[in-house]
């Protein structure tokens, strides 16, 4: 997660208007989920990949690694769809074990493939958003979409404090290691517990201090901040619109 954060602050597409990126990613995601067709998914997958790597400057190996994570998960779970236990063999493959067959049908293979591609293409849409859009920008889009304030404020504070607490946890861990706190299983279990409890106390203290600091700046129960807007560009909007029209055209053709 921390490394995704680093990627998005260094992305070439970072200063593109967040609303454009959001609309692009979400509309494409909807197209994938709506159509559940192999051509649409492949199309989205390829376009998102090209944009992220070529336009966004995400290293190819890095992109593949991130795509690999859901892929492994999807492959494992689709095994359950492909492999059947049945009294009679199906058309794709069959091994007989004792009295029954371990077997699979062409139809279920096709279904699994479709599922994997749809899911992967959807993930690539979300990756596109999170690889190129820092969290505060996503929050500002959500704010304009009238997402409830409470949720937005929580997201803002949680996002910031993930990093603060992560740093504290890291410091505690280093200091434990330097005192041989992790030399064997028993001590490392103990150290982990100690770190967790220290972290909880630290989090409480930090939240107290933060509240004071916010009150000192006239906080009245309502976090109001200015968003930094990067103006949308006509050319980009036209490209997005054209892409989405083609994509949804494809969706309609596939669904007919």
């Amino acid at each position: 997660m921390i490394s995704i954060d680093r990627l998005c602050y260094n992305s070439n597409l970072r200063y593109v208007n967040a609303g454009e990126k959001f609309a692009f990613a979400v509309l494409s995601l909807c197209a994938c989920v709506l159509s559940r067709s192999i051509p649409v998914s492949c199309f989205v997958l390829v376009i998102m990949g090209i944009l992220s790597v070529w336009k966004g400057g995400i290293p190819f190996s890095c992109y593949m690694r991130y795509m690999g994570v859901p892929l492994v998960f999807l492959l494992l779970s689709s095994l359950a769809i492909i492999i059947n236990f049945s009294g009679e063999p199906l058309d794709l493959f069959a091994f007989s074990v004792g009295g029954i067959y371990i077997t699979g049908s062409r139809e279920s293979l096709f279904y699994a493939l479709n599922l994997i591609l749809t899911a992967l293409a959807s993930v690539s849409c979300l990756y596109f958003l999170s690889f190129h859009t820092p969290m505060p920008d996503i929050l500002s889009v959500l704010r304009r979409l009238r997402c409830p304030k409470l949720i937005l404020e929580l997201m803002l504070l949680i996002y910031r404090f993930i990093f603060v607490l992560f740093e504290v946890a890291h410091a505690i861990r280093v200091s434990q290691n330097s005192r041989l706190g992790n030399r064997n299983y028993r001590t490392s279990m103990k150290s982990f517990g100690a770190m967790a409890s220290a972290l909880l106390i630290r989090a409480m203290k930090k939240s107290d201090a933060l509240y004071n600091a916010m009150e000192a700046r006239c906080y009245n129960g309502d976090i109001r901040v200015l968003d930094e807007n990067f103006p949308p560009r006509g050319k980009e909007i036209i490209l997005i619109v054209v892409f989405e029209i083609i994509l949804y055209g494809l969706v309609v053709i596939e669904m007919l």
Partner: peptide
């Protein structure tokens, strides 16, 4: 405050600075 980490609440510098004056 002494520890900036307990004062800064936002991940964005711009948002952070705008908080006080908007209030």
């Amino acid at each position: 405050f002494q520890d900036p980490d307990s004062q800064l609440f936002s991940a964005s510098v711009y948002q952070e600075i705008s908080f006080g004056i908007l209030n």
